[in-house]
């Protein structure tokens, strides 16, 4: 059944902008991205929005819907009560380019700062043998679709531009955790670096990132907390400290 929706869509660019009221039809089963496309095709031809797969797999259509970081393609119109206004705004943690499109280059810069995967020297293609249970820990983090909703919601940077230079954000903490738990990765001190160079210590585990993750990755429980605990253990426990010096890689203890 079609219904009329009252949308308030933020329109503007880096200089200025404001919410614009739009009335649009919505059909049964539609998601917010569908109605944005209808507005674009019928009313505001130059309305800027990013999207690609429309199936929750690419993480392009990230925006804030009634103030919550969401994927527009996975947000059902029917989840809003009849008659309620729906407010659609760009991600707040990143600079606006135009309308609902923001400049997310911060994330690509941070990706560049994380040391890459490093396989054992001399290992040949086809040789690796790994148990399913061992790859699953990292696979959870590799489900990440890079929608950057966790980055957007994280209060360390959400309203604190000044923290951005020293804080990689939840997306990259799970990247570090993924490599740290990767059965083949041999690079040492990933957790220590997370703490000292990527701002892991600034996270005070409010779990906001986990809540917004459309892939339901347990960012805080499975990546951030275990890394924080190990860093603390290694720093204050002399035996563990010694162990980390003599073992081939850290994290085996």
């Amino acid at each position: 059944m079609a219904r009329k929706l009252n949308l308030r869509i933020w329109r503007g660019n880096k200089e200025s902008g404001a919410l614009q009221n739009v009335i649009v039809e919505a059909n049964e089963g539609e998601v917010v991205l569908d109605v944005i496309h209808r507005v674009q095709a019928e009313q505001l031809n130059d309305l800027a929005v990013r999207w690609n797969c429309k199936a929750g797999k690419c993480g392009s259509c990230s925006m804030e819907i009634n103030g919550k970081p969401r994927l527009a393609c996975m947000t059902q119109v029917s989840s809003f009560p009849e008659g309620e206004e729906i407010t659609i705004t760009p991600l707040r943690a990143f600079p606006v380019i135009k309308d609902l499109v923001t400049d997310v280059s911060f994330n690509y810069k941070k990706a560049m700062e994380i040391p890459s995967f490093q396989p054992p020297v001399g290992m040949k293609p086809g040789e690796p043998r790994m148990a399913q249970v061992d790859v699953e820990r990292s696979q959870e983090f590799r489900k990440c679709i890079e929608c950057f909703l966790c980055q957007d919601t994280c209060h360390v940077i959400r309203d604190h531009e000044e923290n951005k230079s020293s804080f990689a954000g939840p997306r990259f903490f799970i990247r570090i955790a993924e490599l740290d738990m990767h059965p083949l990765d041999i690079l040492r001190n990933r957790k220590k670096k997370a703490q000292e160079e990527h701002g892991l210590g600034m996270c005070n585990i409010t779990k906001c990132c986990t809540e917004v993750c459309p892939e339901h990755i347990r960012i805080t429980d499975n990546a951030i907390i275990p890394m924080k605990e190990r860093v603390v253990d290694e720093k204050y426990d002399p035996l563990r400290w010694l162990g980390s010096k003599i073992r081939k890689r850290e994290g085996i203890l």
């Binding site: 890459s116 293609p125 086809g126 690796p128 043998r129 148990a131 790859v135 990767h182 083949l184 990765d185």
Partner: peptide
């Protein structure tokens, strides 16, 4: 096969068989 094995050397994590090979 070579192209898949190569991905593993770049960090890809495929599902495994019981013997630990790529499933």
């Amino acid at each position: 096969p070579d192209r898949i094995w190569e991905l593993e050397m770049w960090g890809a994590l495929f599902d495994r068989t019981k013997e630990g090979k790529i499933s």
